Amino acid sequence: MTGTDKGPVVVTGAAGGIGLAYAHAFAKQGRLVAFCDRAERVVEVAEDAGGRASGALGVVMDVADELSVDAAFARIEEEFGMPSVLVNNAALFVDLPFSRWQDIDVETWDRVMAVNLRGPFLCARRALPGMERRGAGRIVNISSTTAHVGGHQRLHYAASKAGVIGFTRALAREVGAFGVTVNAVAPGSTQSEGVRERYPQDMLDRAVAARAIPRAAIPDDLVGAVLFLASDAASFITGQTIVVDGGHVFL
């Protein structure tokens, strides 16, 4: 099999929120899906999705840690075979406090970069050899519209997500000859459970008012773009970033 529409899928940051929506969407297509997350509850989440018998595998993985990534992919390959799709979704965002640039300490800066930028690199590096041998593969990186407009008091997050776009473009140049595409999705403000719990309503309302389509975004709004870029239908699209924000940022 050289296509990607039926091979195993790896989704990072899949214990909840947007990542869980991606993982569920692939599972509904009948795909084998590795739900990966640093949080140990990801194992229970995968069981709730049907477990191994239904093609859902929960794998504890810290994307910022090389050994953890290697061990997780080794398990996924043992259970499912070589992944044909990687969705690099894991990121630090909701739990980051709003901080002026001069108040961001080096430890926090480094941790954001480790998860949000090193993580996609480590996961892609581990997934790519199998994709290259297969002669096909899809990597979908999750960026953010903050990479385009800046993030108010979120300098570290905005910088990391801009880095994801650069990473996407550069990697796409290197692996296209092997039948592997690398693209990104840049969501706008999305009202996942964590965002609704932590953000004031007036801030969420302002995000809605700034859109051409003036309604709240939910995780399911992002699924279509990810499924498309992960499919064989997108085999001639690479190095691109699709903004999914209801018409706030126009590129």
Score class of each variant (00 low, 15 high):
G3V: 06
G7N: 07
V11N: 00
L20Y: 13
H24R: 15
Q29A: 06
G30N: 13
R31Q: 12
F35S: 02
V42D: 10
V43N: 12
E44S: 01
V45E: 03
G55C: 15
V60G: 01
V60H: 04
A64V: 09
D65K: 10
L67E: 15
A74W: 05
A74K: 10
F80A: 11
G81L: 03
A91V: 00
V94I: 14
D95Q: 15
L96N: 04
R100P: 02
R100L: 09
W101H: 15
Q102S: 11
I104Q: 01
D105E: 12
V112P: 02
V112F: 03
V112C: 03
V112N: 00
G119V: 13
P120D: 15
L122N: 02
A127E: 02
M131P: 05
R133M: 14
G135N: 07
A136T: 12
V140W: 02
N141E: 08
I142H: 07
S144A: 02
T145Y: 04
A147D: 04
G150S: 00
G150N: 08
Q153A: 14
R154T: 01
K161E: 03
I165Y: 11
E174W: 09
G176Y: 03
F178Y: 11
V180K: 05
A184W: 01
P187T: 02
T190L: 05
S192Q: 10
S192P: 04
Y199H: 04
Q201G: 09
V208E: 11
A210L: 13
R211M: 04
R211Y: 01
A212K: 10
P214I: 08
I218K: 12
P219S: 01
L229K: 14
L229P: 13
A230V: 02
F236S: 14
D245M: 12
